[in-house]
Design a protein around this nucleic acid. Structure first.
Lengths: 230, 230
DNA sequence: TCAAAAGTGTTTGTTGTACACCCATGG
DNA sequence: CCATGGGTGTACAACAAACACTTTTGA
């Protein structure tokens, strides 16, 4: 049954660029860890792991994110396959990078701590091993493209969020301020956010109404040829 | 020097979705071949090949396109890595798909014939082996996105082309007609096409002026933050 | 002389962008 | 009572979309 016996086989890994957003300090962050094995032990790295014989690439990527954060349902997208024969000095490894978006309040803090990982703001991104800095820039570029045309920003926020929170997220992603009147009009005229009775009262005295993304309505609109655009 | 001795290794291949455009019948085509080896011998397939130990993925993809067409300078872009463990019944193979755009009048016809390949219009796309039909749809989707925001359409045309030819190419890519006044205005106001003295007189009695894409000007504009958009 | 494709401008609607003031409330 | 962040509407410019006629010339 194996027709390709004589061909060369290589190590294949997945690496995950894990984004989170902190609503308190308004910063976009990455979950990074210090490698506890050779080569490059002690240096900053993305979470990664080898692909096992019976799992798909997507499954491998989910597995390693779950191993680090305990989360099962994370938004995840394949980014790019990196295959320079010398990218890892420890041997020839092809790595398929994925990026994932997680709600920063929901991950398993114990697990993250145990793995020696921490949230690093993008503004303080350290040197990473191998080509991991390239992976991060490509991920950031893709995130910026995606966030304009797909409703993925919501993956980084709690289920209930306020319009100002959403705006600060987009400002963090694009590193530039938006006009709050235009921003509010744009997100609300799409008709995909349900306004709740409840207000968020931590950040201001007046309080801001919570909203929720309406997934059902979004899928209905998609079927009718709707294009999300922010 | 090899730190990962005990890890599982897998076969890694590249597959290429090779697009061409025929200015005579106005059709977008794919270069496909009939497999001459098992498994799935005799069925339609994309051009592919295994990644060798000392080449990068990009190099492997270039190598197999060159092997089939004889062309050295082709536009090529990585598409997606396919890793379902059962995607190839002949064994577990991870395949990284690339799409490439070639000028349909410049390839080596002998070589293509020798390899048993032919140009198949997208409208007559047959069943392909494994997940190759998925690869083609993803490639087509990416081509449509790219062609709007990057000047890659020109990769599918000869150096000298007419505005009506360019329009027919875009109509083939997007499968819908464009208004010729709006189309012409849009491509010309970008200022990236140089008008030549010469006329193309095959397709009409009046003849249409040839134009050339000005790469230098495009790169200059890019540096100033210009965004191609069609 | 006519069929066939090339070439040309204007109008209208839509969308993006810029901009300043009032509101609610906890301290 | 005031500082802080939440919430609202309008005017102008830029761009997309719709639309019909004239030009050239080989057969």
């Amino acid at each position: 049954m194996d027709f390709y016996q004589q061909e060369h086989r290589t190590l294949v890994a997945v690496d995950s660029i894990i984004f989170g957003f902190n609503e308190n300090d308004y910063e976009l962050k990455l979950l990074l860890l210090k490698r506890n094995f050779e080569p490059a032990k002690g240096e900053w790295s993305l979470m990664g792991g080898f692909v096992t014989p019976n799992e798909s690439l997507d499954e491998a990527a989910l597995r390693i994110v779950q191993k680090l954060t305990g989360l099962e349902n994370v938004y995840m997208e394949q980014l790019y396959a990196f295959g320079d024969p010398h990218r890892d000095p420890g041997g020839r490894i092809i790595s398929v990078a994925y990026f994932s978006l997680i709600k920063i309040n929901e991950y398993d803090k114990e697990l993250v701590k145990k793995n020696g990982a921490s949230w690093i703001p993008l503004s303080e991104l350290p040197m990473l091993i191998f080509d991991h800095n390239d992976m991060v820039s490509i991920a950031l570029r893709k995130l910026r493209i995606r966030a304009r045309t797909q409703p993925i920003g919501f993956e980084l926020l709690p289920k209930k969020f306020t319009i100002p929170q959403l705006q600060r997220l987009y400002e963090a992603i694009y590193q530039k301020p938006f006009d709050k009147r235009n921003f509010r009009r744009k997100v609300l005229t799409m008709g995909l956010l349900d306004k709740l009775e409840e207000k968020e009262k931590e950040t201001s005295k007046k309080g801001a109404f919570y909203y929720q993304f309406n997934t059902a309505k979004y899928e209905e609109l998609l079927r009718r040829g709707f294009n999300f655009e922010l």
